[in-house]
Amino acid sequence: MAPFTFELVSPERVLFSGSVEAVVLPAVEGDMTVLAGHAPMMTALKTGFLVVTDNPGNGKRILIRGGFADINQNGLTVLAERALPAEELTTDVLDHEILQAEMAYDATNDPAAKHVAEATIAQLREAKEALSF
């Protein structure tokens, strides 16, 4: 498979920049895999694991919390609101994140915001289960 350029940036730092084989994105309307020569598109991301395959058979998981992916002829750029590589991720960190999301849920009265917070909590729980594998 042809490699393409992938960049993952969070507000604090650039987490990944280089040429990859495939990237699985947790897009809002379902997970999707991006390969070289993907049609230009722009999608919002939800909380979940992003899987980078830089060499065949070598995947790297990064937990991201919301953001955007921009696919154009120059490659794929992911703007993540928060990103945590799986190596830095422990159940403690996730528990903390879940706690924060729950606090955000309790703090708001706006139904739309409550809905968003609820979804985030569910997705974080899902990520926690995925991590224990």
Binding site: P11, E29, P40, T43, N72, Q73
Partner: peptide
């Protein structure tokens, strides 16, 4: 980036713009 190809938006353009703009504000302030 100027593209001849048509961009696909998921969810639609307006919704993305509506979330992107407040985030842009946060980023600028940060």
């Amino acid at each position: 980036v100027s593209t001849d190809a048509v961009y696909d938006y998921e969810p639609d353009e307006g919704e993305i713009l509506a979330t992107l703009l407040p985030r842009n504000l946060t980023i600028q302030i940060f």
